[in-house]
Design a protein around this nucleic acid. Structure first.
Length: 761
DNA sequence: ATTTATATCTTTTTT
DNA sequence: AGATATAAAT
């Protein structure tokens, strides 16, 4: 049966949907209707008689999977529930939960997040008595992660002299040993980090052919979305799964590959051709999303990258408005201008949800938050400090993790003295030593502490052990995740501690915990989750994407996120902000990987999110690490063919709180001097009309920050960014002192004096 | 053993 | 500016 949805597709799209037997690669340009094709393809497979149970679809975020599942459900009905869909990590975590025992893991293994991994590495480095300044946990983790993503085990790493040589050259000859210890510690903690989920799946399929066989026959059709962002480890898993049926379909766009930093490999696309000689390739080249102007501008940018897969992205949409380029004096002004533009856009009938602000780093969101709040535009931030990374949440989760898995060393370290129960570092160290001396686990010592220790600390530990035992008992009785979490929150003392804390933060934290409990309840109440156990919940939670977090139901909000988070989304009007050299392209990326092309692809992704309107902005100065720095416009601004651009005729927003703003304090005479010379941008890109510089404080030419140690209340001061103000009070805390200063233009600020660039007048 | 004060570092993106 | 680690004081 051929449903009418096929008639809604163009020729290549239809081919992508109906080519169901044998390997298929879909090169899907930005906005080419990829999601629609994937959805219909699955629906079509089911219409052709394939059981949803036999279809595996790997997506980039869990949210994307859920969304697709719902779309499919609308076409083919509730059968869609049986599809296997999700991220690589979540699908293979599920498989490892079932079959991981063959590798020596139990089904309730813990998933270590990046923080856990780093913390474990830090303690290993310390134990090995290595210098933690040469061996940075971050770097070490990256190195190990890179190895795992290329399927290099710690044994192989240590056997291969090339790695030794590399590490010695980098002054870190002990990396191999660290890798070894790390891997063994994770294993004995019954824990896997993110990379292990993929690595161990590979090992499982390599060493246990019965398991491989089972899944090869189960998944008769395998589909991979965002194929350009898969790494070798992921690729090999899919290749193995599809080895029998050869029914593998990958969808990707080399121009949108932006995760090489975490091991993604565009080579996969090329390898794919070699691995499947009778591969069918379909190119989706028509962009349905954006105006001609935006599509052409994006093409003009991306054509600067070498080694593109050949394709010709075009649009039949209207010509559309030109891309607006805005120059702002400062990061704060950038926020003001853009919030103002959104305000104006809404006057023309657009909704908040039509707008998105995209930036390179999460830290950039601050200026926009402030500006939007000021004029009462609701917004939503995706990413950043995620809900599940907050301390209070991680504490509760650590209790739950420890209840599920007493070998979880990181969880143990987190909760043993949280809330305070008089068990300090020395006590913990004693326990750990005893455990390894006796050749038993830490939990063995803790749960039978009387056999080893007595005294004050032993009492506290006994109390802790009893607590945990009561939780384990609930787990064994088969109580669901919510019942256990509720009990843990109440009896651990965490909730009570937060309840007692009446500060603003304390109340917020208490609410966060309540929210966590609610979300556990909805997990348990959700009929789509068949496994309601604590273990199932924990695994789901640790693999949540930042994009997965629920919103509060009010959806008409301006969206703010990093460009990485924006993949797969589209908005009517997109602002790409912070287009400054060293910020975007990121200095870090250029320094560590020397990869301008990936940054350019990132910019390409950002641009192609826009449907009708695109605004690019950069600031001339910006506060970073408490210091004001001058910025140069990003080279990317020049890389777009200027015929698609309209250079800022909109310097500074009129009205709002900026009116009447003046660099000169009303109480002080203007300081006369040469106009401040700003370093002229190396770029030849000049806005048609210079922005009026009146809006921000221009520091006096002879600005020399005074020694602030004799600063006192009542002093008049000048600050290069905030302008003139008066000191309200000084808060001294030992060597660190803070000054509360009322700035005439900016209001009250609290400055750390060791950072503050203040001039006493 | 725990709390508080001081010193040091960080610098990106995310499963 | 923030977090986190170390040192000193309670």
């Amino acid at each position: 049966m051929v449903r009418d949805y096929l008639s809604q597709l163009n020729e290549p799209q239809r081919e992508a949907v109906t080519h169901t037997q044998g390997p298929l690669m879909i090169i899907a340009g930005a906005g080419s209707g990829k999601t629609r094709v994937l959805t219909y393809r699955i629906a079509y497979l089911i219409d052709q008689g394939v059981d949803p149970f036999n279809i595996l679809a790997l997506t980039f975020t869990n949210k994307a999977a859920e969304e697709m599942r719902h779309r499919i459900e609308r076409i083919i009905g509730p059968e869609a529930r049986n599809l296997w869909m999700g991220t690589f990590h979540s699908v293979f975590a599920k498989i490892l939960r079932i079959d991981g025992f063959k590798l020596g893991y139990t089904s309730n293994f813990t998933i270590y997040d990046t923080d856990d991994s780093k913390s474990l590495l830090r303690s290993i480095i310390k134990e090995m008595q290595l210098d933690d300044k040469t061996y940075k946990a971050n770097y070490v983790l990256n190195r190990i992660s890179g190895a795992k993503n290329n399927l290099i085990s710690w044994q192989m790493y240590n056997d291969n002299p090339i790695f030794q040589a590399e590490d010695t050259a980098a002054q870190m000859p002990e990396l191999g040993r660290i890798y070894r210890t790390y891997a063994m510690r994770c294993f004995s903690a019954n824990a896997m980090d993110f990379d292990d989920l993929l690595f161990n799946t590979n090992v499982l399929f390599r060493d246990h052919l019965d398991v491989l066989n089972k899944y090869q026959h189960k998944f008769r059709h395998v589909m991979v979305d965002e194929f350009q962002d898969t790494n070798i480890s992921q690729y090999l898993i899919t290749r193995k799964l599809a080895a029998v049926t050869q029914n593998i379909c990958v969808v990707g766009d080399d121009a949108q590959s932006i995760y090489a930093f975490r091991g993604a490999n565009i080579q996969n696309i090329l390898n794919f051709r070699k691995d499947y000689p009778d591969l069918r390739v379909v190119k989706l080249e028509q962009n349905y999303r954006s105006t001609k102007n935006i599509v052409n501008a994006a093409n003009s940018l991306i054509s600067r990258n070498k080694g593109q897969l050949e394709k010709n992205i075009f649009s039949d949409n209207e010509e559309g408005a030109k891309i607006e380029v805005i120059r702002a004096m400062s990061d704060n002004e950038e926020g003001r201008i853009i919030s103002h533009e959104i305000f104006e856009g809404k006057l023309t009938g657009l909704k908040n949800s039509d707008f998105a602000i995209l930036y390179r780093t999460n830290a950039q969101s601050r200026a926009f938050e402030e500006a939007l709040r000021k004029i009462n535009i609701p917004y939503r931030i995706i990413g950043g400090l995620s809900f599940y990374q907050r301390k209070e949440i991680k504490d509760i989760l650590a209790y739950l993790r420890y209840t599920a898995n007493q070998k979880d060393e990181e969880a143990f370290k987190r909760i043993i003295n949280q809330p305070k129960r008089g068990i300090g570092d020395t006590t913990v160290a004693k326990i750990v030593v005893t455990a390894s001396d006796q050749g038993v686990s830490v939990w063995d010592v803790v749960s039978r502490i009387r056999n080893f220790f007595e005294g004050r600390a032993a009492n506290a530990i006994e109390g802790f052990a009893d607590l945990i035992r009561s939780y384990i008992l609930m787990l064994e009785e088969g109580k669901d995740a919510h019942a256990i979490a509720m009990h843990v929150a109440k009896t651990s003392g965490l909730l009570h501690e937060l309840y007692m804390d009446k500060t603003v933060e304390g109340v917020a934290r208490h609410e966060n915990v309540q929210e966590l409990l609610n979300s556990i309840r909805s997990f348990v109440d959700n009929d789509e989750n068949e496994d309601k156990s604590l273990g199932a919940f924990l695994q789901t939670v640790s693999l949540l994407t930042t994009a997965d977090e629920e919103d509060d139901g009010d959806n008409d909000k301006v969206t703010m996120m990093t460009i990485h988070g924006a993949k797969g989304l589209e908005f009517r009007h997109v602002f790409v902000v912070g287009l400054e050299e060293n910020l975007f392209p990121s200095q870090m990326m250029l320094k560590s990987r020397d990869d301008l092309e990936e940054e350019r692809r990132l910019f390409y992704v950002a641009i192609t999110r826009a449907e009708k309107q695109l605004t690019l902005s950069y600031a001339q100065q910006r506060y970073t690490w408490g210091k004001m720095t001058f910025c140069e416009p990003s080279r990317f601004l020049e890389e777009i063919d200027s015929k698609y651009l309209r250079l800022g005729d909109k310097g500074i927003p009129q009205g709002f709180e900026t009116a009447g703003r003046n660099p000169v304090s009303p109480q002080r005479p203007a300081i006369v001097g040469e106009p401040v010379k700003r370093p002229s941008p190396a770029s030849n890109l000049k806005p048609v009309q210079a922005a009026k510089p009146v809006e921000t404080h221009v520091p006096s030419p002879d600005f020399v920050p005074s020694d602030t140690k004799d600063l006192k209340a009542g002093d008049q001061v000048e600050h290069p960014k905030f302008g003139f103000g008066e000191v309200k009070k000084i808060e001294k805390m030992g060597a660190t002192a803070k000054a509360v200063i009322f700035f005439h233009n900016e209001g009250e600020k609290t400055l750390l004096l060791s950072f503050a660039k203040l001039r006493i007048l």
